[in-house]
């Protein structure tokens, strides 16, 4: 499929999820059974995106700094997020650590 069409479909679907209850006629509340899973969408999706990106190299588990410096660099960025709650510094420290490790090995 043309990637533009894929993006437009995502855009329409996203707009509809935003419109959902706001656009509904009458007063319709969110059913309780639906509320619970939605709370776990963010931690689940984000973890599923992050962990393979930093733990795997060429499809295999690899946390050795020499062959997969991304794991150690991500760990450094995680410490920055936890300690200083700063997104910008996490990116700076994460990228900086990666460059340093790539330069060292």
């Amino acid at each position: 499929m043309n990637p533009w069409i894929t993006v437009v479909i995502i855009g329409v679907g996203t707009y509809l999820s935003r419109l959902s209850f706001v656009g509904a006629l009458g007063s319709r509340a969110m059913p309780v059974w639906a509320e619970r899973p939605l709370k776990y969408v963010a931690p689940s999706v984000l973890a599923a995106l992050v962990l393979p990106a930093v733990l795997l190299r060429d499809g295999a588990l690899d946390v050795a700094p020499a062959s997969n410096p991304r794991f150690l660099a991500a760990l450094a960025a995680a410490v920055v997020v936890i300690r200083f709650k700063s997104v910008s510094w996490a990116i700076v420290v994460g990228m900086g650590s990666l460059w340093l490790l790539q330069w060292l090995v």
Binding site: S20, F21, R28
Partner: peptide, 21 residues
């Protein structure tokens, strides 16, 4: 790609429900 993006964006349902009133 579409399914993944829409799962991530499903949280808007929650916001929409809270803002609707």
């Amino acid at each position: 790609i579409i399914a993944t993006a829409l799962v991530i964006n499903a949280r808007h349902l929650m916001y929409s429900a809270a803002l609707a009133p």
